[in-house]
């Protein structure tokens, strides 16, 4: 059939009154690390659940490994690995028992696929007799990933795997995903963190059940057509407020301790901005031109399609 690991065509899904997914089209190549990026409520989990055959779409078709998610759901359940958003190992079982259990229900053994999980599992193997409930967040996540991998899936679905995990473990985790990708496993990962989007081969930026853009992170950043300014002052909130009231503002968003600002004309100069900010009574003003990040692109897309 197709060369795609995942092929989604015109998928729609709504729950009672809320629309979770609107006309989603997406395909993931074999061996690709693909990111679904968007805030909570963007529809990432719904999409992953449709692909793992847990939820039926209202309309449209989707194929995983060439299998229809509705008709061939049993085939899909044998071949994919899935790590749900909620940490879903058995807390009262030990590390080893958890891994053993998931190996058994997939009809395999730890020994058989040890090579695949080794780089991850070896990091927690010294705790193998500890109950999963007593592990730290990062270790739990490694165990969950090991369990999702133990049957050598062809496609791996990870729903917000790094939510609630510390920064160091997050970096490690993405390193592991890169390794898995190099072994030919296609990975679809969802994340609310924009900085993680840059670690994917391609990403789909999602918002309110719609895909705003699909591209490689590099291309998305390159496509950012505006001049972006980073503004700092003694009062972040006041800066944001006064900029949003300015008739020359296209958009202004808070990013940590600074404001990322786009003017509605590319001819604007830094002295012009500084002048305006001084008039607004702000002090310690710092202005610099910066390169856009994925988050800036996401904000820009949101500004252009205010769906909600």
């Amino acid at each position: 059939m197709s060369n795609f690991s995942i092929d989604i065509q015109n998928i729609n899904k709504s729950y009672e009154k809320t629309t979770a997914l609107k006309n989603i089209n997406l395909s993931v190549n074999k061996g690709e690390l693909f990111g679904l990026v968007g805030p909570d409520g963007a529809g990432k989990t719904s999409l992953i659940r449709i692909l793992t055959s847990l939820v039926l779409p209202d309309s449209g078709q989707a194929f995983v490994d060439g299998f229809d998610v509705v008709k061939d759901y049993k085939k899909i359940r044998q071949n994919v690995g899935y790590m749900p958003g909620k940490f879903s190992l058995y807390m009262d079982l030990t590390v080893l028992e958890n891994l053993n259990f998931f190996a058994t229900i997939f009809g395999t053994t730890i020994e058989e696929n040890y090579e695949l999980v080794k780089p991850i599992y070896s990091q927690i193997e010294s705790f193998k007799h500890r109950k999963a409930g007593a592990l730290s967040g990062g270790m739990k996540q490694k165990l969950a990933l090991s369990c999702a991998l133990i049957h050598k899936p062809t496609v791996l679905f990870l729903d917000e795997p790094t939510t609630g995990v510390d920064a160091v473990s997050r970096v490690e985790f993405w390193g592991m995903l890169k390794d898995l990708k190099s072994k030919g496993i296609s990975i679809l990962v969802s994340t609310p963190y924009m900085d993680e989007a840059e670690l994917c081969d391609r990403v789909a930026l999602m918002q309110s059940g719609e895909i705003m853009q699909i591209n490689s992170p590099q291309q998305i950043v390159n496509d950012f057509s505006h001049t972006l300014w980073q503004l700092k002052s003694d009062n972040l909130y006041k800066t944001l407020q006064s900029l949003r009231n300015w008739d020359k503002t296209h958009s202004a968003h808070a990013f940590g301790q600074s404001v990322h600002f786009v003017a509605n004309s590319s001819k604007i100069t830094s002295s012009e901005i500084k002048e305006y900010m001084e008039e607004a009574g702000l002090e310690n003003i710092e202005i610099s031109g910066i390169k856009a990040s994925i988050e800036d692109c996401f904000m820009e897309l949101m500004t252009n399609n205010p769906t909600n």
Binding site: Y82, G85, F102, I105, A148
Partner: peptide, 13 residues
């Protein structure tokens, strides 16, 4: 409740 059912369903069981 713990979300384990999700994994059990997405398995050959």
């Amino acid at each position: 409740e713990m979300g384990n059912m999700e994994i059990l369903l997405v398995s050959p069981l």
